[in-house]
């Protein structure tokens, strides 16, 4: 090696380029974007709380038919939960069935096409679902609603006088079920597809039929995934606005278990959409407060879903 006295200085010059500045700026930008998501979420909570605070204790006339916020919100929450839970009761068996078909029954090309079609269902705007539910599905389901009332009317759910238009909780739940089917199916499909091949083959090697293989290898492995998919679907159903607004003939917050009558509970979201357009600023404030309740409630449901997933992931490890 022939080191001259000037060379190290020269090398040092070229080796200490200024590339780090660009990196720092870009890193900062990326970080800021991530942080802005934090700010936005906090903002949703804070601004709803600030603007809606007055809504928790507004003039009693605003809480028709109740007189204070708590029963008002509880009534709305009841309607919201009732419709959403019914929707999930209808949707989950279908979602599981479709997901099983896609992962374990259909040949590949067919499976791809059907998966695409189911995804397409998620792309149909909710207002279109609402109009269709109102004008097409509702009338078509009327005979079924009448039949249920006639033959199973002794069950409280089906009791009461059947709505003449069919715009009932029953119909709303079915429309919502159709709308949440894609997301729940997608998640079930993912977990079904992840069943260890080894377990499946172990079952088949023992002489299990396809259903037995699914029952003993696929379903136990996927239980938490099905729950997570259900919860996510539930989160969607809780927040769905337009379809419910259009399909359901709601008469404000109320608690009733009748699913087939024309006197139905409103949901938080549909109640907001129904009344927010008016010029009554005080009522808008109350509605903002109920929006906060909905936000917190869906947040809890989604969080529960995450918790279920994380807990079962731990169990697997």
């Amino acid at each position: 090696m022939n080191l001259t006295t000037t060379e190290p200085a020269e090398v040092s010059d070229t080796l200490s380029g200024g590339s780090q500045r660009g990196d720092r700026v870009f890193h900062g930008l990326a970080f800021a974007a991530g942080a802005s998501i934090m700010v936005a979420l906090a903002g949703v909570f804070i601004f709803l709380a600030i603007r809606g605070a007055a809504g928790f204790s507004a003039a009693t006339g605003l809480y028709q038919p109740y007189t204070s916020f708590v029963p008002y919100a509880a009534g709305l929450l009841f309607g919201t939960a009732l419709v959403a839970v019914l929707a999930m009761i209808i949707a989950v068996p279908f979602a599981v069935g479709v997901a099983l078909f896609l992962t374990h029954y259909a040949p590949r090309p067919l499976s791809t096409v059907i998966a695409y079609l189911i995804d397409l269902l998620a792309a149909v705007p909710s207002v279109v679902f609402g109009l269709w539910g109102l004008k097409a599905l509702g009338p078509a389901l009327l005979p079924i609603q009448r039949w249920l009332n006639e033959h199973l009317g002794f069950i409280p759910f089906f009791a009461g006088e059947v709505s003449a238009t069919g715009r009932t909780v029953f119909l709303a739940a079915i429309v919502l079920a159709i709308m949440v089917l894609p997301i729940t199916t997608a998640i079930c499909r993912e977990v079904f597809g992840q069943t260890p091949r080894l377990h499946e083959e172990a079952a088949l090697a023992l002489g299990a039929t396809r259903w037995e293989m699914i029952r003993y290898a696929v379903l136990p492995h996927s239980r938490s995934g099905i729950i997570a998919g259900t919860m996510l679907g539930l989160g969607r159903a809780l927040g769905e606005t337009m379809a419910v607004l259009l399909v359901l003939n709601a008469s404000g917050p109320k608690i009733t278990w009748h699913l087939l009558t024309s006197d139905n509970p409103a949901t938080i979201a549909s109640n907001i959409a129904q009344n927010f357009q008016g010029e009554n600023i005080d009522l808008q404030v109350v509605l903002l407060a109920t929006g906060l309740v909905l936000f917190v409630f869906t947040f809890l449901v989604n969080f529960a879903a995450r918790w279920v997933v994380i807990r079962s992931e731990r169990k697997f490890q």
Binding site: G34, I37, M38, A40, L41, G43, V44, F47, L48, I50, R51, G52, L232, G235, L238, G239, E240, T241, A269, I272, A273, Q284, L287, L288, G291, L294, F295, T298, F299, V301, N302, F303, R306
Partner: peptide, 26 residues
Amino acid sequence: ITVLVDVMTGIPSIVAGLFAVALFTQ
């Protein structure tokens, strides 16, 4: 951030609308 993005996925659309109203009317 990953958790928050998940939470954000679950925001009901009407709540997003209300947030915009609350923010701008503030």
